[in-house]
Write a protein that binds this DNA or RNA. Structure first.
Lengths: 226, 226
DNA sequence: GTCTTTTGACTGACCGTTCAGTCATATACC
DNA sequence: GGTATATGACTGAACGGTCAGTCAAAAGAC
């Protein structure tokens, strides 16, 4: 509605040069998540951003560069955030529990499943972006989880293992289960694991795999688990 | 320069109507593995089969139907085979060890990594084929592994868990590690896990996660509340 | 020669990219 | 305030490359 202006119709568009890049990046994130890199159509990104195809090229030089910018401005920070927010005190087991819960929560968000798919499936086609992603995201993320494992081993809570290998076990479980519980899971709906149980099952599996063996000389009573 | 005597040159092609379908299916398997469904080009399949593009259409009505036939005739049997060949005697732990080793061996073969990628990440675009794959391959395969788990639980070798959830843990570990050790892994070469260690690490991780606690004493060792 | 099999140029659709033109807004001038 | 002019954000038709699928003609088999 135009209060000051008495024009007969709403303008077909408004000048919003400051907001355009963000609108386009948001639209691109959702379309890339949904369809992957190659299958994402600029027409659809434009439509979701509420602009026309040509407008995208006023702000980004190409589809590939638009993709890079989405990674830098949207995805990178989101993943970095998923790795933060872990209490640094408490037992290694508690830390690991809260790490798993936080990861599961972050990866359950809207675009995560599609983006994981994209990274696993298509990112290798863009080697420099894959390298960027590896260094900036994966290495950092692995170090955080690795530190939890190492601390647990040092304190005797966890049995001695190769921390790097253990990190990969845990990530494999999380990532695969995100794919399997997401909207494009291969299983018919009625056969999918209930998302509520999955976190508990992963946590249980991981902790049993890592906990130090009981010391035989000191029998004790009571089970840590029901 | 020495042709026997009669013909002036070798024929450019021979009529091989019986062998054509197999040649095309083999070529299609390798190209689909390498590039995925959408990015696979019929020209490339034709070239690898040693025929021209038009010939494919003499034997298969469309790219999608060709893909279906590859699944039915090549991939399905291969995966079924990977699930067989497990000794049915011995302890559950031995069975699980040999199951993991056999899977790892089968999935290390040439086209496996590409197909896993394709199935996990792209198959959902073809819902009826995804349903076919689920029923014919996944359910069957999960039952075999599930039986090993159930037997181990029944015999007391493994702690009680939800067998279905456990099957998914194990499959998640195997599948993800196949992707991570394959040629299109996201990690720079020097950071990839050595394939030789991966099987041992997975086996170790899984067995520790599943083994029943020692029966006489479940100790509260370590100092969780330090 | 006839019949079967194969070829590869062709078609049409699709999509990233371009650019000449449109029009909402800002500024200059009264 | 109102009107003229300038700006540049935005549009969408058009272009060029790619690729699944077609078909008339060529090449083998007999």
């Amino acid at each position: 509605m135009s209060s000051a202006h008495a024009t007969s119709h709403d303008p077909r568009w408004r000048r919003l040069p400051e907001e355009r890049p963000q609108q386009i990046l948001d639209a691109a994130l959702s379309v890339f998540s949904e369809h992957g890199i190659d299958a994402a159509k600029l027409e659809e990104i434009a439509a979701r951003a509420g602009v026309s195809k040509g407008t995208i090229y006023l702000y980004f030089p190409s589809k590939e560069e638009l993709f890079r910018e989405v990674v830098r401005q949207r995805v990178g920070p989101a993943i970095a955030n998923a790795d933060q927010a872990i209490a640094s005190d408490g037992s290694a087991e508690d830390q690991l529990r809260s790490y798993l819960a936080h990861q599961w929560e972050c990866l359950g968000l809207e675009d995560s499943e599609g983006w994981i798919r994209l990274v696993v499936l298509e990112l290798h086609k863009y080697p420099d972006l894959a390298a960027f992603h590896w260094e900036e995201i994966v290495v950092r993320s692995n170090r955080i989880l690795g530190d939890i494992i190492r601390r647990g081993i040092a304190s005797g809570e966890f049995r001695p293992t190769d921390p790097q290998a253990t990190v990969q076990m845990i990530k494999a479980l999380i990532l695969m289960h995100v794919l399997w519980t997401g909207p494009r899971a291969p299983a018919p709906v009625q056969h999918r694991p209930a998302p509520g149980n999955v976190l508990a099952n992963i946590t249980d599996f991981v902790l049993h795999a890592l906990r130090a063996a009981p010391q035989r000389a000191v029998p004790a009573s009571g089970a840590p688990h029901a």
